[in-house]
Design a protein around this nucleic acid. Structure first.
Lengths: 221, 221
DNA sequence: TAATTAAGTTAAGTATGCTTAACTTGTTGC
DNA sequence: GCAACAAGTTAAGCATACTTAACTTAATTA
């Protein structure tokens, strides 16, 4: 039986491995899911028994095709819900993550396919994350870099933000950053890894944590 | 803590008491919720300890204001979801009940209020059931009778059907019965409590179980 | 009124998914 | 190589919400 808890574990394993299918450490997982390491060990064994993951004691956990399929299905539901709520109800992009986090587990395949069709098979969710297709493939390939890796003085376009950090998204709205907004990298401070950027002529200092969760693409021209 | 299971118990207690606040038998509840009587006994004690119900051993269970508030909130979420899915995604009225049954427990007050506003504070769901307001009151008072109590030869309008019976709703669609459709009571068979009706000039025999779940109002003229 | 039956209760047990506490394993720096 | 520490595991225990089986209470009816 794939429970809601298992869906969440698989989603986190897939996400933390960044789609590479790498091993994920159990400590990392426990932090992501806000549970103890022992809870993760226990669940790892169950997911292994169900053929969803490869689990090597003292090493970590790695997603397998069966688990990946489940993870992508949940991610698909999450991102389509986010976009649907923004599109139909005009919810702001900082409010949809938490709602989608719950709805994703209680939506039939039929309903999510209907939503997909209604939205005309969109490629990206409101935070710039690609939406998996019904068959588990992506309609869009990510091609951006975290702000921390950007080059000084250049101008970029914001193409993706981490929706799991509600406060981050809310703060970005506040300083008038949204998807496709052009920003310029003014300064990168080595000592705390913060970055100073310019948006619409206004300068802002972004902490290291913010900088790791904002993804950019080179602006055309 | 009000869990999903408790929400479902309270919803059923409220519904089975038909809003009168009467005692509900535990056997009735166990059938409604598809659990054993012992499970109901156990939960009754918990709901009593939380002040949601009055529970008298060997007698039954009766909803209290605290429990009623929770039940109405869940019912509100259920019915608004049903209507929202019909309105935005064009789902048919026989497909929305099961979806709403899950979504109702995972929808924030903020989200459901937004949906309520989007739908312009509707009075009725797709099956003709009144939708509770945010404050727990009803915008609409039911004023119909079950088909079993209708008078021979008269013409009525279908104003409400029991959405919990998916098959019933699907069958009604099949014989072209929808809300506000006019039907005429042709014959009532005593021996099995079935009723023969006429819809759009076509006669249909409806079993006792169907007849108990369809509610009618006298047609004007 | 006593027997029968339905309704309701209790006790013991199960699965899931957590926790804490004590432990083992693996890795890293000196 | 080994001490120190982080990572991971194990064991015992808990809460929720079920189950089955055996029981008690209440209502019905002959």
């Amino acid at each position: 039986m794939i429970t809601i808890s298992k869906e969440n574990y698989l989603k986190s394993i897939y996400t933390l491995a960044k789609g590479n299918g790498n091993f994920v450490s159990l400590t990392e997982l426990s932090k992501e899911l806000n549970v103890t390491k022992s809870a993760v060990t226990e669940m790892s064994k169950k997911l292994y028994e169900q053929g969803c993951v490869k689990y090597v004691r003292y090493k970590g956990i790695k997603i397998l095709p069966k688990g990946k399929k489940i993870a992508l299905k949940v991610i698909r539901k999450h991102r389509l819900w986010e976009l649907f709520l923004v599109e139909t109800l005009n919810l702001s992009w900082d409010k949809v993550h938490l709602e989608a986090e719950k709805l994703e587990h209680f939506t039939s395949d039929f309903l999510i396919d209907t939503i997909d069709e209604y939205l005309k098979y969109p490629k990206l969710d409101p935070h710039g994350e690609p939406i998996p297709c019904k068959d588990g493939s992506y309609r869009y390939k990510i091609n951006d870099i975290p702000m921390s890796e950007c080059i000084l003085g250049k101008t970029y376009k914001v193409t993706r933000v981490n929706d799991r950090e509600e406060e981050l998204v809310r703060y970005l709205s506040k300083i008038d950053i949204q998807l496709n907004r052009e920003i310029k990298i003014i300064e990168k401070l080595k000592f705390d890894n913060s970055v100073i950027i310019e948006v619409n002529g206004v300068k802002h200092s972004l902490s290291s944590k913010l900088v790791d969760n904002i993804f950019l693409t080179k602006a055309n021209g």
